[in-house]
Write a protein that binds this DNA or RNA. Structure first.
Lengths: 206, 206
DNA sequence: CAAAATTAATCAAACGATTGATTAATTTAA
DNA sequence: TTAAATTAATCAATCGTTTGATTAATTTTG
């Protein structure tokens, strides 16, 4: 009974394959096979393989847009806002680990600027939202005057590193972000660590 | 007068191209053209395109191996060791930004385990060296008992994020890691920030 | 030492397979 | 019946690799 429209099927299949094999590593024939659609349907609906990729990205970027702004407008201390931001940011990325990895992978190729300029712009906006929150805290005297951008980079970098290499945080054992139970464990540890470290870093020494 | 042996030419050209276009994105014809060698020489010397890639990686991993162990053995407090580790680690990666980006890109594809298992192993060893240094500091009472692995991930993640997105740390302007002057500025800011943040995080509150 | 034999290095050309894309024909649906 | 959706077949281009032949360098032999 579920409405299985071919266009959506292609998008779903392509996203899965792009995440796993990358853009270059995924062929239109794979996408066709995985989605159950004919190869020509890809060009029929999206013009090209890159068109499929582009539509997936736009969809995601739009849907990522932006709990952050909401948090920013809340009427709570900057400190509370920042804790919330860390929580939401980490959750969002860990819950979409494969997509996040894929995005960074393709982003790190200097190619395809026409696709990624918009994504970079969107990410830049998120960054500014966090920057504003920290600035707010500094002006209120709640935070020390630190290197704000570097502080944000540490937050993002830590989350990103956990996402790409979750095994790094566990000697021996093999955590799997696809496994929800594992993911929740990792998420808790990550958020605890980050909130503690960043707050300590931002809080004036007594 | 410089001895220009074709095998080396191929390695140099391939590394440059792999860094810029990725493994899949680089063709053997490109490598041949860039190196001035005949296409067949690639397979003659390395067996396959993957063979070239593998030899580049081994070379790098071996050459990366390991200022860290040297630092670890020095007869100085854990705190000094950690500061040194951050300095050397950041410098090493920022000075080879393109290679680092390429490595992470290819590493994040679950493919080619035969190539990357050794690299992951080598990286794991580096991680343990840092872990030992922090443990040492905790046991000596110089450091607080923190989530060690998460702390290391923050160091690596921050460095990695600066490497992949140096523009994030500078509103507006365009820093370029290829430009030595820019790189030194970024490096200094990164090391300052990281040393400060991590030490604060590790130092017991008074 | 010099001729012969062997090995290494290099080349242009071609291989079969696969790529993303398109065509033209056919089926489905409104 | 007409437009939209879907198909199989096909396209030129490019992929990584292999081939057989040729030249250059080295080693072996008489």
């Amino acid at each position: 009974m579920e409405k299985t429209d071919k266009k959506t099927d292609i998008l779903v299949a392509a996203e899965k394959l792009f995440c796993e094999y990358g853009f270059e590593g995924t062929s239109t024939r794979q996408i066709a096979a995985e989605s159950g659609a004919n190869m020509a349907m890809i060009n029929y609906y999206f013009g090209s393989k890159m068109g499929v990729f582009q539509e997936i990205m736009e969809e995601r970027v739009m849907s990522f847009k932006s709990q952050l702004n909401q948090i920013k407008e809340e009427n709570i201390p900057a400190k509370e806002k920042l804790l919330k931001v860390i929580d939401k940011y980490a959750s969002r990325i860990l819950n979409n680990a494969n997509f996040h990895k894929m995005m960074h992978r393709e982003l790190s190729l200097s190619l395809r600027p026409e696709v990624f300029d918009q994504i970079k712009a969107a990410m830049g906006q998120n960054l500014i939202v966090i920057e504003d929150i920290i600035k707010e805290g500094i002006e209120a005297g709640d935070f020390r005057p630190v290197d704000i951008r570097m502080t944000i980079v540490s937050v993002m970098g830590t989350i990103s590193m956990v996402t790409t290499s979750p095994n790094k945080i566990a000697p021996d054992s093999n955590y799997d972000l696809e496994n929800e139970k594992d993911r929740e464990i990792i998420k808790a540890r990550l958020i605890d660590h980050l909130q503690e470290m960043i707050l300590t870093h931002l809080t004036p020494k007594k």
